[in-house]
Design a protein around this nucleic acid. Sequence first.
DNA 1: GATATTACCTGACTTATATCAGGTAACTTG
DNA 2: CAAGTTACCTGATATAAGTCAGGTAATATC
Lengths: 291, 291
Amino acid sequence: MLDNIARLRRFNRAVTREVGALDHSYLGRGRPLGAVRVLQLITRRGTDIAHIRAKLTLDSGLLSRLLRALEAEHLIHITTDPTDRRRRTAQLTPAGAAEMAAYDAIGYAKATETLARAGNRQQALLDAMDLIATTLLRDQLEIRDADPNDPAAIACLQSYYDLLLEKIDGLTPNMLTLPLSDPDNYRAPHGAFLIAFSDDFPIGTVSLRPLEATIAEVKRLWVAPHAQGQGLARRLMQAIESRAKSVGYIHLKLDSNESLTEALTLYRRDGWSDIPAYTSFPATHWLGKTL
Amino acid sequence: MLDNIARLRRFNRAVTREVGALDHSYLGRGRPLGAVRVLQLITRRGTDIAHIRAKLTLDSGLLSRLLRALEAEHLIHITTDPTDRRRRTAQLTPAGAAEMAAYDAIGYAKATETLARAGNRQQALLDAMDLIATTLLRDQLEIRDADPNDPAAIACLQSYYDLLLEKIDGLTPNMLTLPLSDPDNYRAPHGAFLIAFSDDFPIGTVSLRPLEATIAEVKRLWVAPHAQGQGLARRLMQAIESRAKSVGYIHLKLDSNESLTEALTLYRRDGWSDIPAYTSFPATHWLGKTL
DNA sequence: GATATTACCTGACTTATATCAGGTAACTTG
DNA sequence: CAAGTTACCTGATATAAGTCAGGTAATATC
């Protein structure tokens, strides 16, 4: 155990240096780090000041001063909320957006440098980073509705298809459409497309489409490799089942392939049972559940 | 590529929070972080002030003040170097050592908490952390001589044995001795035990022992999984070969097992060629090289 | 032995970050 | 509608952290 702690501390040292370098680069534009962090939270469409304060746990006095400084630089524009005139909203001005783009460029350059340093281990490095980020940000996991044509949805589907192509013999890319040919099936009120986000990164998905008036089909359950082992698949299934129930469905169906053993185990453990085949290749197993 | 950058930034955010929490905990003992960092570098046996300044890249004025503050708290004791009376050396007092132990306990608690949060993914998390630390600290890699009974050496051998037991059928723990039964064979002047350290963590080893006047044997080449793919094995082999040459050996031998394919490929690519068998199980391949 | 360099110190100053007490306008609630 | 709460602002104050100009021994170099 002591050894593990030592490993973790070595990691902290390594990463402190790296993060410190990034922090320092933010200081290269004549603005304190605190101001930059505030600026990063402000969007073109406007961000509530209270939201910034909560997110960064800043003293109201401090935040007030930082905002004033940013306003004096014409980077942001503060307006009063019409519905509650005590509330204020900060908006990025065009100059502010340009400044953020400059910070972005710095961050991009730093990130590129770090990746380049990894040489031929880039992919391994990124995978390791995903795993750590997902584990440490575990408490920030959020399952949200998304449109099937949303970029995050497309990214999830792409990863899901990659997994299928790797696992299922005989499956070819032309059998998988991207974007989906029937997006409306996955939109409210009769369908759903759920995505699990960790710090705004898609790390899992599941969707629902109508079959008959009281029957819907659960489709495309996927969890990113670095997020596996945390019960996310089960949470996604619970979310989609309760959604189906609230929409009014009574029966659920799904198809799967024998290669997807973990998924099949999960379904069976959660009350799904075998039903007659209702689709063809690549499906080899068909399951149903009554809500 | 842009996507990779986004992944890296998410990692940065996750880790900044974690490291920030650790930093913050250091402030909980009524001492600024800068002072703590200085204190951490000071040992009971004494640390050169110039060394501290170089390591932390501190202004001489700032460091001077921090040291004075620590001295006023009776945590350190500053003496003048007798050989060069401009130089000064800071030593930890018993009170200072006690204070450092308290900081250690804080770090230990924080680390334990982080690991606990990882739940059943602790091992995966630690492996990912090792990979990242080794990659980011790549420039701090150092190959040093060690004693075969040194704790770092024992740790390397243990890992090496674990690898062998996993890869070679028929091998049992009782065939592998730890610590080595013939440590003197691996000590200067006729032998050597090299360890590759990354930020003082052992991540690879190789050793040399005498066979005859002009012939030596290369033994136990091992590289930690998270350090593979960076050419470390080759660097270790080059180091041990040049050591053998400088000691006066002309011929080198080694034995290996067919399961250790990467190692065999490396040897052959670096000028080693097959020789008659000179050992028995678990060896299946025997190679030699003339310096 | 004069001159330069090194190692460290001192004091003045700046900036970033943080905290606190008090104030005002807007909104909520009994 | 009076009293309390909320959202934000202002000004005072503190501390941490870093920079800079100058100073003093001790040592190195020609």
